[in-house]
């Protein structure tokens, strides 16, 4: 598992918060720029269902409302072991 500098080199996108009005466009552009096959991972309650920010001004919705989510990691904050487990589940290593 490596962090890369550009979505052109990525296999997966990790989203860690709710989608605000400002970030809808960039999120969709980032998804567009990522080559197939790709996975979208929503990390934490904020990303999965907006968490404490639900209904806030400027919040459009959860990641799942804007783009499709393949893997959700719940928790506020999510337990590190849960994150590792979910990521290992994707990579199979």
């Amino acid at each position: 598992m490596r962090l890369v500098a550009s979505p052109r080199h990525a296999d997966g996108l990790l989203v860690t918060g709710p989608v605000t009005r400002n970030m809808v466009g960039p999120l969709i552009k980032t998804l567009e720029a990522t080559p197939h096959p790709r996975v979208v991972i929503a990390v934490g309650d904020c990303a999965c269902d907006c968490g404490v920010f639900r209904g806030g001004y400027g919040v459009v919705g959860a990641v799942g409302d804007v783009i499709g989510v393949d893997v959700s990691i719940p928790g506020c904050p999510p337990d590190p072991t849960t994150i590792v487990e979910a990521l290992r589940g994707i990579t199979g290593r």
């Binding site: 550009s6 979505p7 052109r8 466009g25 960039p26 999120l27 552009k29 980032t30 567009e32 720029a33 197939h36």
Partner: peptide, 15 residues
């Protein structure tokens, strides 16, 4: 080759 897809050049997500 997989079906190719045309999308705009990556500009760091800027509008």
């Amino acid at each position: 080759r997989p079906a190719s897809r045309v999308s705009e050049a990556w500009g760091c997500g800027r509008e």
